[in-house]
Structures are given as C-alpha cells and as structure tokens.
Design a protein around this nucleic acid. Structure first.
Length: 575
DNA sequence: GCCGTTTTCGGCCCGACTGTTTTCAGTCG
C-alpha cells in the first residue's frame, strides 16, 4: 500500500543504507533505521502531521522530522539526493546479498567500480577480485552462493511453509536422547507473514547430538555454519535453519532472546541495563556480581525486569513494552475464542469438498456456528445461479444443528463491481443470513474510484464482511490502491466487519492495516476462506495476524455468541 | 541522529561465526 508512511519508510531505509555504505556513524545508521520502522508502522497518515506532530513519533527527532517535512513538501530530500549522487543505486542492491555488507560493497565499488549484482557476478566469474583485500576464495564463493539465493527466493518464505518445516524439525529433535525442551522461536513464533529463517531451540546438557541430528535430517541440504553452540543448515527447499542448544537453566532467557524481535530485545536489554543488569541468551545477570538473577522461564525474565510476560505476537516494539509497564497489555484473541468461521466454500463453486464434509469437519473443530459462503453469479466461471444457491440453502437448513449442535448460517461471497455494486437485488440478498463481499477483478482502479467502490460496498445493508479487503497476494500482487483510512472509517460507521483472511498467501488484512483499522473502531472477522477441509486449519495464521494487530475477542465478531453475532448482522447499530 | 529516573552530553544490546587482515573486521540476527 503506497501511502506516505511507507514511502518515507523506504526513503529513510535507503538513506540509512547509503550512510552505512559511505562509512558513516553506525549509530546514525541505526537511528535512521529505527525512525523508518516507526514511521512505516505509525497508524496515522504522516502527511497530515507537521514537524511537531512528527516528533511525537518515537525515534523521530528534530533532524528526521525536518527531512520528512521536506519530502512531503517537495518530494525529495536534498541530503538523500546528495548521497544518491555519490553511490549508484546498484551498490545499495549489493548489501541485499547475504554475507555481503556495506563495507565490502563500498570496497567493490571504489576499487573495481562494481555497481550492480550482475556486474559483481560477472567480475567473480572473470576472477577480477583475486587481489582485492578481504575477498578470498571462500568469500567469493559465498557471494556467488548468496546471489543465486537472492535471485531464486527473494529471501523470505511464506509463514505456513516455515511452520511446516519447523514443526517437523522440532518433532525430530525432540526424539533425540537428552532433549529436555525443543521449540521454534524467531519471527515464526511471532507469526510474521513471511519468515527469513527458522530458529530452533533445544534445552539439553550436551549440544553435539542435536547438531549432528540436524545435519543428518533428510531435509538438510547443506551445512552453512557449524560451531559448538550454533549450527546453521539450509534445507532442500532453500530455507535456512539455525539451531541453538542451551543449558536447561537458560531456557527462558534463550527463548526470549531468540524470539525477538530485534527491536523488542533492544528495549528489554535497555531496561535491564538501567537496573544494573545484563540480559543475554544465557540469562539475566547482575552486572557487578555476575550472578544470574533469572533465566529459567520467559516469565521469570520478564518479571525480574518488572514486566508481565508479553505474548510473542506483540514483540515488535510497537508499544508493547509501554503497555506492559502500564499493565495495559491487550487480552489477545486466541484460536480457542473463535466460535465459528464466516467465510468458507464448498464444491458447489470452487471448493474441493461437499457441503456435508465441510460441515462435519467444522463441527469437529468445536465451532458453535459456521457460515457457508459460496461464490455469487458475477464470478462467471463459478456458474452460480439462483436455483443452485436456493437448493443449497435447503440442504444447509436440513444440516443446521445436526452436527454437535453447530448452527449453520447460509451465506455467499459477493463480488464488488467497479461501481461498488454487488450480485443480486436487495430482496434476494435479504434471504441470506450473512454476506461477505470481496474484490475479484478491476484491481487497477485509481485510488479515488477504488475508495468509493469499497465504501459503497460497506454502505450496502446486506454486506456484513469485506473479504480479503486489499486483495494482495504475498510476494505476487500488491494491495489495491485505496484511501484505507476512509474505508476503515466507513466500516466502523456502517457496522461492516473487515476480514482477516487466514490463507497464508493472503493474510489480508495484514497486521499493520489491522492496527490502523482498529483506531477507527472497526470490527473484524477472522475467517479461513477455506476451499478444502485442510484450509480450516489455516485459522491459526489469521489469529496470529489478528494478535499482531493487538485484537481482543471484543474486536472480532466471530468470537461472539451467535445471538450477539445475529444482532451485528442486522446492521442497525444495535451491537 | 535519538534520547533523558544516567536529562543537553555521552551512550547507543550483545554474542556468534567466518574468513583471513593470524588477532580481528565484517556480517548476521
């Protein structure tokens, strides 16, 4: 979503890279990186802020606020332009190569005038680096390897693939003799939508058996690093896995440390330092005496820092530390809170499983209610008709309550056309218990038209949920361009829920959009958009995303009892 | 460049691994 916050975030990140490459102060680099993150994640549109308003954003001070104001006014920042003129854009691309940082990038540019990834690959092939200081044979090999990976994967993998791989590895290592604890940590535990690498932690007295077991797994393609305390491998699917084995007494500190995020850890370490303590993966230590004061559990570590345990999905330095200090951490929505799925398909349209199969599987998940929402006629390839959907309604009514008492809602997934209209006239729509409405085409309308389209859908009294609101596909298709502040406000005003679509290639809304929509008081529905029984289990990713958006059960309509949900579906403001 | 119960200067998280400059710089998380 191209809004000023993201533009400025990208600009500040670029400036930070350029400072690093030209050998600037490392702390200055960090300051720009921190400010970039803060602005990118700021819920308010920064173009509506003046310099003082900008300085209220954490990690934005006088100098950066001035640069942002300059950018918003003129579209450029003179000092950034000045650095750009000294360092070609291609040199900055070099630091995206694993094992190649700003120092090596600058040497390549200054000594050999290499200013793109392609030029670097060619130079290595031509053996042009042979007497360049710091670029031995092994280093060149690593760079070539890194370039290949960069071109192949773009670096990150989808959450569900990482989860599958991690759960397999955890299961294997848990079987190794001497294993006291084993789990995954890192961005996977925080449920980020894409994962750079998988962090696995083991608590055991001896590390070697686990290091060897990891290297010996059939899924392991190559060993990248093999120290005594850390082992890194690459799987056959190209995912990097880092294994750390910790003494059992350090389990809590290790888990906290390797869960991150980096920004969250910097905050917790800073709190430790102020108390005369030092926090590492081995424990929380008194600086003077060197004695450990906490390490066995995450709860112990946080408690000794004066904090309650903070759920991993919140650990992004987006205000969770301050909320914890105030005792105001949200009671996050969990998978157990979800009473039903409000967006699912059957083989009447493009689902794989028949109605009865989906309903049975849903009942086995313990749901109190479940909505069947097959596609409406305007998604022409699905060939929906009035007769087919009415016949399905009869079958749904017949199954209502037949599985563990689970109540069934008959719904549909409508198509929002470019004008904001949906399939079927009002009187026909009134026959549904629930309507999801989604964008399925015309993704390239301009912002004004797209905003109007979505707002009109919200204003339709028969539309209860906006499905996968931005229609992004992670790594494939960007979010559609709309004034999301206006859309989110319309959702709150009209009592239309925003979907958090749990499909791992969607996760739409994403965490940052949720944080923004929440400011307007909008409600949400965490749905799977299941097209198969297996898809029902994707709910965990949607719930993880909702947690990353700080949502509580009261924000999520499908945690509510059916009676309350039905009042919400009346759209008359009675909830 | 940011920040402040260490408050306008001086610190900014900390440790691991790799390759090579053989005692440490660069990179990573």
């Amino acid at each position: 979503m191209a809004r000023p916050n993201e533009e400025v975030e990208a600009l500040l990140r670029e400036y930070a890279d350029l400072i690093a490459i030209t050998g600037g102060d490392a702390f200055k680099v960090r300051a720009y990186e921190k400010a970039a993150r803060a602005i990118g994640g700021h819920p308010e549109d920064i173009s509506r802020l003046d310099a003082d308003g900008l300085r209220d954003i954490p990690n934005v001070g006088r100098s950066i606020a001035e640069k942002v104001v300059e950018y918003l006014r003129t579209g450029t920042v003179s000092v950034v332009e000045e650095r750009r003129s000294r360092i070609p854009a291609g040199v900055r691309e070099l630091v995206a190569i694993p094992t190649l940082g700003p120092k090596k990038a600058l040497r390549l540019y200054e000594d050999l005038h290499i200013s793109s990834v392609d030029e670097l690959a060619a130079a290595i092939e031509a053996d042009a680096l042979h007497d360049l200081k710091g670029f031995g044979e092994k280093t060149q090999e690593n760079i070539l390897h890194g370039i290949a990976l960069l071109r192949q994967a773009g670096g990150r993998i989808p959450l569900h693939l990482a989860m599958d791989a991690a759960e397999d590895i955890v299961a294997e290592l848990s079987e190794v003799k001497g294993c006291r604890r084993c789990t995954y940590a890192g961005s996977l535990r925080r449920m980020k939508e894409t994962i750079g690498d998988i962090d696995i932690l083991v608590a055991a007295a001896r590390s070697a058996p686990f290091m060897d077991a990891l290297a010996a797994l059939p899924s392991t393609a190559e060993v990248i690093a093999h120290g005594a305390k850390k082992r890194s491998v690459r799987t056959t699917k190209g995912v990097q896995v880092d294994l750390r084995v910790l003494p059992p007494v350090s389990w809590g500190a290790g888990l906290q440390y390797f869960t991150g995020s980096k920004a969250h850890n910097i905050r917790t370490r800073t709190i430790a330092v102020r108390q005369g303590l030092k926090l590492s993966e081995y424990g929380l230590f008194d600086v003077d005496s060197g004695t450990s004061v906490a390490s066995r559990s995450e709860e112990d570590v946080y408690a000794r820092l004066g904090l309650p345990w903070i759920p991993p999905t919140l650990r992004e330095d987006r205000g969770e530390i301050d909320a914890a200090l105030r005792g105001e951490l949200p009671e996050l929505v969990t998978e157990r809170d979800i009473r039903g799925d409000l967006h699912t398909h059957t083989d009447l349209t493009d689902g794989l499983a028949p109605l009865e199969t989906m309903v049975t599987a849903a009942a086995e998940r313990g749901y109190a209610y479940y909505a069947v929402t097959d596609h409406a006629p305007n998604l022409y390839m699905q060939r929906m008709t009035d007769e087919k959907i009415l016949a399905q309604r009869e079958r749904v009514r017949a199954l209502d309550g037949a599985h563990r008492g689970m109540r069934l809602l008959h719904g549909t997934e409508l198509n929002i056309d470019p004008e904001g209209e949906v399939d079927w006239p009002d009187e026909f729509l009134a026959g549904f218990d629930l309507c999801v409405a989604s964008l399925h085409s015309h993704f390239d309308l301009d912002r004004k038209a797209m905003t109007r389209r979505l707002v009109r859908a919200c204003e339709n009294p028969h539309v209860h949920v906006i499905g996968h609101p931005t229609t992004r596909l992670i790594g494939k298709r960007p979010e559609v361009d709309a004034d999301w502040d206006e859309v989110f406000a319309a959702c709150a005003r009209t009592g239309t829920a925003l979907e958090i679509n749990s499909q791992p290639d969607r996760l739409d809304l994403c965490d940052e959009d949720i944080l923004r929509a929440r400011q307007y008081g909008a409600k949400f529905a965490v749905n799977t958009d299941a097209h198969s029984v297996l898809h029902l289990a994707c709910l965990r990713f949607g719930v993880g995303t909702a947690q990353r958006g700080w949502l509580t059960p009261k924000d999520v309509v499908n945690t509510w009892p059916l009676s309350r949900l039905r009042r919400f579906l009346r759209k008359d403001g009675s909830v």
